[in-house]
């Protein structure tokens, strides 16, 4: 099952290390602007757009963020 892992930038290294620990270091990652918590709806929409662009790039070109 193809999986894409999504997180905000300060947690990217931890997410990558956790994936490594689980033997999943090849999982594609999408890294978006921090924070996601405590922001307004319009900013959430911007984060979604940011994630969308990267998801497309990851899936079509096989590159992680």
């Amino acid at each position: 099952m193809p999986v894409v892992l999504l997180c905000t930038k300060p947690f990217a290294a931890l997410a990558r290390a956790t994936a490594f620990g689980l033997g999943l270091e090849q999982v594609p990652m999408v890294v978006i602007t921090h924070p996601l918590a405590g922001i307004h709806d319009t900013d959430v929409a911007d984060r979604a757009a940011e994630a969308y662009e990267q998801v497309m790039r990851v899936l079509t070109q096989g590159e992680g963020a």
Partner: peptide, 12 residues
Amino acid sequence: PESVLLAVPPRR
């Protein structure tokens, strides 16, 4: 001494 007690996250 060689006995594994724990796999420590995140890198295990």
